[in-house]
Design a protein around this nucleic acid. Structure first.
Length: 582
RNA sequence: GCUGGAGUAGCUCAGCAGGUAGAGCAGCUGAUUCGUAAUCAGCAGGUCAGGGGUUCGAGUCCCCUCUUCAGCUCCA
């Protein structure tokens, strides 16, 4: 039996799905249907979106087509014949129209179904044995929100039933790690409908973890020469007019006051810290000797994301980031940029997310000039500079056009959530324009005024998002140094309650986050609850332990690890916290 | 913002031919004092997301709003 790449199999599955849809819905118009990571989809233009029952019917029809074992054949046509063949398929005609002149146009055919397609495919429909349709959703034609919304069906296909089954089970497992579910269950955060979308309530556990992260990040930044600032959360529109936000980011801001009333004072909540933190630089004249200057701030920002975008703690309207801005001379740019990357890497390694990220070099889009400030020459120049820094550091990255900030290119550190959706966790940006806009200058060694480069960067990114990803990474069981509760004291009977209380107090006095469960429940019941709550250590105390001044220590992951003196346990805990062990 | 699901007790869910709401877990009270994943009994808990409408009567049908989930678009 011939071997086919999994993409060919999935692509063929998508064609078989289109064939089944056309059998059941002859009026449907087909758009595009590629293989994607872990599966495939096909977009259709139909009168009504597919229901769950219709999806089942389509899947059933697909099985019929698989059984019929149609040969999958390719052929080429000249443009006029291709158009004639696809005359009832307007989306295909649009695609044909965009293909380069003079080259043959490829088609694939099986049974009564023919599709415009570059391939590759498997040799016959009987190969597609293990597949499943997953969902039906809306998707814009050509990904353009101004164009028609089509109906997209997602599915997946594998070489065999076992792999398919394993994949479907993995999807179920992933759902259990979802921070949006676990984070609420474990009481890290909640939301309230009359507060509004994207405005989560961080509960004691969530707030504690974020506090721990913030203290650590601020201390680490201090060690690396950063100067902490605290700047206002809102400003008059005048500030944003200087920065360019008023023209380039107004839709994303929460504005207070009527912008159309010339007399009224108009304020806006800050969507970024840059124009505020720049004022520190601007407060006096600066010399080349002052540079580099590194400012950091634990900064709460407000962005008016559109209503469909919010997701748990990952995409919200008010959030707090480890924001920072560095002003430096051109000759310092490489070193400062590297310093930012190294700091971010250190943060990721320490929390254990370093294996899960990828780097993206986000560039401007020369075709979309109104999104950006500055000239094409400036953009090209700074992008070349940034690329050389990245290459020199040996960073492996992908390039993305049109993902730059409006003032400069970015190195984005991307991470995927448990559902595979990618978001930016950390960003390091080179800005060659805002200094000039704000009149940030320094006097160089020749006595000339110069504008510094500004690096905008985060070190661990947005705390809420980081918390979400940590919950997913560790399935709620955070490392000891970050765990909101590090140990729970479990007396077996009432006889040990006084001892348990003393033990609890000793741990609290030593600076640890401890709980005492002195309910008169069975020890097995109490251990189970602590397991569910993902507490790293359970300290069981019965008569034996009380008499010996000891604790029986149970590790959440490893089970019983022995009876030890309280001092031994304290030093064990201290060592783990100190080393930030995972 | 768009398309489609969903919203019943703190949580997971049942109730759907329209006839005034039910289970398990959690909570509380009492009993139990127990050695590693669920001790027993009792009690309490809901303007069925909010508002409007149809009806003698609405959790159930219709409309609007809010929230939430998946996907698309967006993410400076």
């Amino acid at each position: 039996m011939a071997d086919f790449p999994i993409n060919a199999l999935r692509h063929s599955a998508s064609h078989i799905m289109a064939q089944a849809v056309l059998r059941l819905f002859p009026k449907a118009r087909t758009a595009i249907g590629p293989a994607i990571e872990n599966g495939f989809y096909y977009d259709f233009d139909v009168d009504k979106p597919f229901t769950a029952e219709e999806l089942e019917a389509i899947e059933k029809e697909m099985k019929v087509i698989v059984k019929e074992r149609y040969k999958i054949e390719s052929f080429d046509l000249p443009r006029d014949e291709a158009c004639a063949l696809m005359k009832d398929q307007p989306y295909k005609l649009e695609l044909i129209d965009e293909l380069p002149e003079g080259e043959p146009i490829h088609f694939y055919k099986h049974g009564e179904f023919t599709d415009l397609c570059a391939g590759p495919h498997v040799d016959h429909t009987g190969r597609v044995k293990a597949f499943k349709l997953l969902s039906a959703t809306g998707a814009y034609w050509r990904g353009d929100s101004n164009r028609k919304m089509l109906c997209r069906i997602y599915g997946t296909a594998f070489d065999n039933k076992e792999e398919l089954q394993a994949h479907l089970e993995a999807l179920e497992e992933a759902k259990k790690r979802d921070h949006n579910r676990l984070g609420r269950e474990l009481e890290y955060f909640t939301t309230v409908d009359y507060i509004g979308q994207g405005l989560p309530i961080l509960m004691p556990k969530g707030a504690r973890v974020i506090q721990l992260l913030q203290r650590w990040v601020e201390d680490e930044e201090q060690k690396r020469g950063y100067l902490l600032t605290k700047t206002p959360m809102m400003a008059k529109s005048d500030l944003y007019k200087i920065s360019g936000h008023w023209d380039h980011y107004r839709d994303g801001m929460f504005i207070m006051g009527d912008p159309d009333d010339e007399e009224a004072e108009v304020f806006a909540l800050r969507p970024m810290t840059c124009p505020f933190q720049f004022q520190v630089y601007l407060s006096r004249t600066r010399s080349y000797r002052d540079l580099p200057m590194r400012f950091n701030e634990t900064s709460t920002l407000f962005r008016n994301e559109s209503s469909g975008e919010m997701h748990g703690l990952i995409r919200i309207r008010q959030f707090t980031i480890s924001e920072g801005h560095l002003a430096c001379r051109p000759d310092q740019l490489d070193k400062e940029f590297e310093g930012c990357v190294n700091l971010a890497s250190h943060m990721l390694e320490t929390v254990g997310l370093d294996e899960d990220v990828s780097f993206r070099f986000s560039k401007w889009d020369p075709q979309n000039r109104e999104k950006y400030i500055g000239s094409a020459e400036q953009w090209e120049q700074v992008q070349v500079r940034m690329k050389s820094i990245l290459d020199h550091m040996g960073i492996v990255y992908t390039e993305a056009d049109g993902e730059a900030a409006f003032y400069g290119p970015k190195l984005d550190i991307q991470i995927r959530n448990v559902h595979g959706k990618e978001d930016t966790l950390i960003t390091i940006q080179i800005d060659f324009q805002l200094a000039e806009r704000f009149g940030m200058e320094y006097t160089d060694s020749e006595g000339q005024k110069q504008f510094p480069y500004v690096i905008h960067r985060t070190s661990i990114g947005c705390y809420e998002r980081t918390l979400a990803l940590l919950i997913e990474k560790y399935a709620g069981a955070l490392p000891v140094w970050l765990a909101p509760t590090q140990a729970v004291v479990l007396p077996i009977t009432e006889r040990q309650h006084d001892y348990a209380q003393t033990l609890y107090q000793r741990l609290v006095d030593a600076g640890f986050r401890v709980e005492l469960d002195d309910r008169n429940e069975k020890i097995g019941f109490k251990i189970r609850e602590a397991q569910v709550q993902k507490v790293p250590y359970m300290l069981v105390v019965g008569d034996k332990e009380m008499e010996g001044g000891q604790v029986a220590v149970r590790d959440r992951r490893e089970g019983d690890i022995g009876t030890m003196t309280v001092d031994d346990f304290l030093s064990r805990l201290a060592q783990q916290v100190e080393s930030k062990a995972k």
